[in-house]
């Protein structure tokens, strides 16, 4: 297999290196002067393309951002999670562990369903933040929130338990970053507000029909 011969043809301006190099220098000096002028302005975020991160956290992240998980409380402060384990079954990374317990007498103001999750554990080091747990939850009880600063000093620091998830929820609510659950998209040929599919969609109302967004594995 022989290589094809390549004919090089340069214009005169290309051939003397300097003309194009000086044009290139013009581009970079324009950027330079604009940036120097910008950086001398007062204020934290002067050059628009660089954020001085730890001091300047004003960058807006999208409301759909998939960060650390939150357990949702409804407007009466009751936990929506019924401990069904659909999220654990839907997780591609198998990082969720849920234990279910029955609701006792007198706990109706704490838990919505007849069962609730006694233990909820997410291994953040395995989580890929895909959002499938949120999509498969029939009650809309788990959501991925805006928290992205998740580094820890040891493996144990990066495990998220139920109390951590509730804390995330409260913090997101205080900061006003809590978003409504994602609306299911319209399905072809279905009535408005039609059912979700496959990965499912979060139901809008608690106690709605129990959607078996099933992820059985063989």
């Amino acid at each position: 297999m022989s290589k094809p011969a390549v004919k090089k043809s340069y214009t005169f301006q290309d051939r003397i290196y300097l003309y194009e190099i000086i044009k290139g220098l013009g581009i970079t000096i324009r950027h330079f002067l604009a940036n120097v002028r910008a950086s001398l302005r007062p204020g934290p975020h002067t050059i628009p393309t660089t954020w001085q991160y730890p001091e300047d956290r004003t960058r807006e992240i999208s409301p759909l951002f998939r960060g650390a998980h939150m357990l949702i409380l409804d407007d009466q402060g009751r936990e929506k999670c019924v401990g069904c384990g659909m999220c654990a079954r839907g997780c591609p990374a198998k990082c969720i562990t849920v234990k279910r317990g029955k609701r006792k007498e007198g706990q109706e103001d704490r838990y919505v369903g007849k069962t609730y999750c006694t233990e909820f554990h997410i291994d953040l080091l395995r989580c890929i933040f895909c959002g499938y747990c949120e999509d498969s939850c029939p009650k809309g009880a788990i959501m991925l929130g805006p928290e992205f600063e998740l580094a820890g000093y040891s493996r144990d620091d990066c495990q998220l338990f139920k109390d951590g998830m509730l804390t995330n929820f409260h913090r997101a609510m205080e900061e006003g970053k809590l978003r409504p659950p994602r609306k299911p998209v319209k399905v072809e040929g279905a009535a408005p507000g039609g059912s979700g599919t496959g990965a499912g969609s979060s139901s809008k109302s608690p106690g709605g029909p129990d959607k078996q967004a099933d992820k059985t594995q063989q």
Binding site: L64, F65, R66, R182, V185, E188, S201
Partner: peptide, 23 residues
Amino acid sequence: EKTNGTRLTNTFGRIGGVDTDLP
């Protein structure tokens, strides 16, 4: 990020369509 939630590894779409609309 505004469409689906993450910047780089956007798990975009589902079998049969998309799960979010454009922003």
